[in-house]
Computed example of a mutant assay.
Amino acid sequence: MAKKKAAFYTMTIPALLLFFLFHTFPTLQGIFYSFTNWDGYSDSYDFVGFKNFASLFTDGNVLNAYMFTFKYAIVVTIFINVLSLLIALGLNSRIKFRNFFRGIYFLPNVLGVLIVGYIFNYIFANAVPMIGEKLGSEMLATNILGSEKWAWIGIVIVAVWQGIAFNTILYLAGLQTIPRDIYEAADIDGAGTWSRFWSMTFPMLASFFTINMVLAMKNSLMVFDQIVALTGGGPGRATQSIAMLIYQGGFQGGEFAYQSANAVIYFIVIVIISVVQLNFLQKRELDA
């Protein structure tokens, strides 16, 4: 018994120390600096209390970043879950080479986000305009990433294309837990395709739907890599997410303490949204 305890502590204590060193300690440092006016490179700083937090609510750039991030997260979360569920339903049917197609659909999740972003950057900036010119389409001939109005759509396309891979696998796992017997009984009763899905399939996928919705929303709210690879937050500040603003202002703009306060608020917002989502969707699971 003593040897088991010793082995347990030998394995867990180093992991806990590393987690504290590289995660918890920097988090506590960020919270500490959020109450100061440190610019990130000076040797001295002063405590300013809640001044940074108060300024965030009147900062136009911060409010613009939050509005863009929320709009982006809602659209991406909806599209990822709708498309991944449709793909999972298709792959779960008795089609030929379905295991091959499952591998193909999961491939985007294996690729690095920055790599995918740079590839799509080239596609949007060169390939699509070239095709648009040949087709005589003015809309396609324009680089969508250079438009303040439509650049965010390009980011959504990339995020959805890569995000549906993981969600599809989870929905497939959920579909495989549903007994085939109930579908046979539904066929005998003459239930239609939509009736079977809405009354039987979807309620039994409720827990998987909850997981996918929460994960998709959380990942979308933390969008950063796609924006770095595609637009850099531009044109202007049209696609500047909260994470991008914190990075640019904190590490490049001499606003380390100010953006640390922004990061604290950002963390609280993500926690609140995730908790509200979980409570709402889990109540729906019980109702289903």
Score class of each variant (00 low, 15 high):
163 G>Y: 05
250 G>I: 02
180 R>L: 02
259 Q>K: 09
56 L>Q: 05
108 P>H: 08
141 A>C: 08
127 A>P: 04
118 Y>Q: 13
162 Q>K: 15
104 I>Q: 07
48 V>W: 00
12 T>N: 07
22 F>V: 13
178 I>N: 03
287 D>V: 14
242 I>D: 04
276 V>Y: 11
227 I>R: 01
214 V>R: 00
271 V>I: 15
227 I>P: 03
184 E>R: 02
60 G>L: 08
139 M>L: 13
139 M>E: 14
184 E>T: 02
97 F>M: 13
234 G>C: 08
287 D>H: 15
64 N>I: 09
139 M>A: 14
214 V>D: 07
268 I>G: 11
248 Q>Y: 11
64 N>Q: 14
117 G>Q: 07
255 E>M: 10
82 V>N: 13
126 N>T: 05
104 I>W: 01
18 L>K: 03
70 F>P: 05
163 G>E: 03
209 F>D: 00
48 V>M: 04
170 L>G: 11
97 F>W: 09
154 G>V: 01
68 F>N: 02
113 V>A: 13
215 L>H: 07
148 E>D: 13
143 N>F: 05
115 I>L: 15
82 V>H: 15
195 S>L: 11
186 A>K: 07
123 I>G: 01
19 F>Q: 08
50 F>H: 00
62 V>C: 06
186 A>C: 12
87 I>M: 10
169 I>Q: 13
96 K>G: 03
251 F>A: 06
133 E>D: 12
95 I>G: 04
233 G>A: 06
185 A>P: 05
286 L>F: 15
284 R>A: 09
200 M>S: 09
266 Y>I: 03
5 K>E: 13
117 G>N: 04
207 S>F: 11
220 S>D: 03
159 A>D: 15
55 S>Q: 12
16 L>D: 10
61 N>K: 15
66 Y>F: 15
232 G>L: 01
285 E>S: 12
54 A>Q: 11
67 M>K: 15
13 I>Y: 06
27 T>W: 12
